[in-house]
Each structure stands twice: as structure tokens, then as C-alpha cells.
Amino acid sequence: MGLYFKYLSILFKSQLQYRTSFWLLTFGQFFIPFSVFAGLYFMFERFGQLRGWSFYETALCFAIIHMAFSLSECFARGFDAFSSLVAGGEFDRVLVRPRSTVVQVLGSKFEFTRFGRLLQSAIILVWALYNLPIEWSIAKVITLLLMVASGVLIFTGIYMLAATLCFWTIQGMEVANIFTDGGREMAQYPLNIYQKWVTVFFTFIIPFGCVSYLPLLYILDKVHGNEILYMLMPLAGVLFLLPCILVWQLGVRHYRSTGS
């Protein structure tokens, strides 16, 4: 972790060398999700509710998934841009260093300008929580934190799987965006508004529902059953990441150098 934070510090300082560009990009990232949230707001302004969900309940779901996406874009950007390392032969250099390939690829690129997007999501989160009559407890606070953290792990796992494909395809495949951007767009709404197969897919295959919809039911006191089970649902993010790491290690073992 010391090496990881060293990477973090070096890249942050390098990006601050062009302060005007950095702050303009951060400012721009702040407004990127604005149109999406505006669409959410005007939809509820017109219809009032969405299958039993109020505006602020849906806004809370929106904020959580976008916070997780912003953090993963910032800190797992190395896997998202991994194809450039393979295509340029730079991954050979990673392999000869006596440190984990996961840590090195994670530390190869950070997008600190994504903090603009994160800030907007945090503002929406605070606004939604302020307007919701939630009876808070330590368990609910922990659940909320786990929802964001586990969402980061799921997005990171998807980036890792997409990066692993680069060992065979060289270039990154746009199909991965179906599960990153597409997953984000799906999970920003409560999953019970979709058809059953969509809910099942994003609960048991790519468990976005376990970090947004299901634990949100617990926080909003809408659970009919074992509350502890709903509270622990975000841990599915850890269970999703573990096989992604194994697949990555499998890809590393089958990697063939560029030969140049």
C-alpha cells in the first residue's frame, strides 16, 4: 500500500502542474451527470412517483451508485486504460518489477478530475438524506458506507475483467461499457422498476442490486424479512471482486510479450 500511495502522490502532483486545465476539467466533470439528474428530477416533477418510490428515495439510489462510479473511475483508471500498456509493450516492464501487477496497474493512472463528479453526487446524497425521514442507527450508517465502497469494488472488478481481455485482443473492447456505463444507468434507479430478468441479472450476475436497491430497502425501513441479510448485501461486492482477481491472474499467466 505504501507503493500505491506513492503512485497516488506522484500522479497527483504531475496533474497539478497544469492547474488551470486540472480545475477546468474538474469543473466540467461536476456538470457531466447534471443532465442525467435533471432528467430524473423532471420525470418525478411530471409523474410524482416511480412504482412506489419517491423522488428523494430514488435520488439517494442515484447518488450512491454515481459516487461509487466516480471513485472507481478515479482510482481504478489504470485497468480502464490498460490496453495502452499492452499495445505499447509497457506491461513487460510491469512484469519484471518485484511488486504485484494489480498494484502497479492500479497505480499507473489516476483521474483526479473525477472528483468533480464525486462532489455533485455527494451534494445529491446530502440533499436526499436531509429530505428523507430516516431513523438513523450505527448499522444504517455502516450499511450506507458499505454500499458506496462495495459499488467501487464491483466497478473495479468489471474494469479488471475488461483489462484481462486485452491479453488476447490487445485493444480494449467497447462491450465492457455495457456493464460499466450501462450498469451505472440501470442501478441509479431501484431495480424493481425493470423486468424480472434485468433485476435477476443485476443482482446475481453483476450484483449492483446488492449495493443499491436491496440495502436501500433496509435504510428506508421497507424490508419484509431478515433485516441483517439486507444490511450485509453490500458484501457481495467483495465476492464479485475475488473471482475477477483470479481471472486477471489467469490472463497474466497467459500473456505473451510483444517481442519487440
Score class of each variant (00 low, 15 high):
1 M>P: 06
3 L>E: 14
4 Y>A: 05
4 Y>S: 02
5 F>N: 05
6 K>H: 05
15 Q>P: 07
20 T>D: 07
21 S>T: 14
23 W>N: 12
24 L>P: 11
24 L>E: 08
27 F>Q: 02
27 F>Y: 04
28 G>M: 02
30 F>H: 08
32 I>V: 13
34 F>D: 05
34 F>P: 04
37 F>T: 13
37 F>V: 12
40 L>P: 03
42 F>C: 02
44 F>C: 11
46 R>W: 14
46 R>D: 15
47 F>W: 14
48 G>V: 12
50 L>D: 08
50 L>I: 12
51 R>M: 14
52 G>S: 08
53 W>V: 12
56 Y>A: 13
57 E>P: 09
58 T>K: 07
59 A>E: 05
62 F>T: 06
62 F>R: 06
64 I>Y: 11
65 I>R: 04
67 M>P: 10
70 S>A: 15
72 S>C: 10
76 A>I: 00
77 R>L: 00
78 G>T: 09
80 D>T: 04
80 D>P: 01
81 A>L: 14
86 V>G: 11
87 A>V: 13
87 A>H: 08
95 L>K: 15
99 R>F: 15
99 R>L: 07
99 R>K: 10
100 S>L: 02
102 V>M: 04
103 V>Q: 10
104 Q>L: 09
104 Q>V: 01
106 L>A: 09
107 G>E: 05
109 K>V: 07
112 F>Y: 09
114 R>V: 00
116 G>T: 00
118 L>Q: 00
119 L>D: 00
124 I>Y: 13
129 L>I: 09
130 Y>P: 00
131 N>A: 03
131 N>E: 01
132 L>W: 04
137 S>W: 07
139 A>Y: 03
140 K>L: 10
143 T>Q: 03
143 T>S: 05
143 T>G: 03
144 L>I: 09
147 M>V: 11
152 V>E: 09
153 L>Y: 15
153 L>D: 13
154 I>L: 06
157 G>D: 00
158 I>S: 01
159 Y>H: 05
160 M>Y: 00
162 A>M: 06
162 A>P: 04
165 L>A: 10
171 Q>C: 10
175 V>K: 09
179 F>G: 04
180 T>A: 03
180 T>H: 09
184 R>S: 08
184 R>K: 15
186 M>I: 15
186 M>D: 00
187 A>R: 06
191 L>M: 06
193 I>F: 02
195 Q>E: 06
198 V>M: 14
198 V>S: 13
200 V>Y: 11
200 V>I: 14
201 F>L: 14
204 F>A: 12
205 I>G: 00
206 I>G: 08
207 P>T: 01
208 F>N: 02
210 C>T: 11
210 C>D: 07
211 V>L: 06
215 P>D: 08
217 L>H: 01
222 K>G: 10
223 V>D: 02
224 H>C: 06
228 I>S: 04
228 I>C: 01
230 Y>F: 14
230 Y>S: 08
232 L>S: 09
237 G>W: 05
239 L>H: 04
243 P>E: 04
246 L>A: 15
247 V>C: 02
248 W>T: 01
248 W>L: 12
249 Q>H: 10
251 G>W: 02
252 V>C: 12
253 R>V: 11
257 S>I: 02
257 S>W: 01
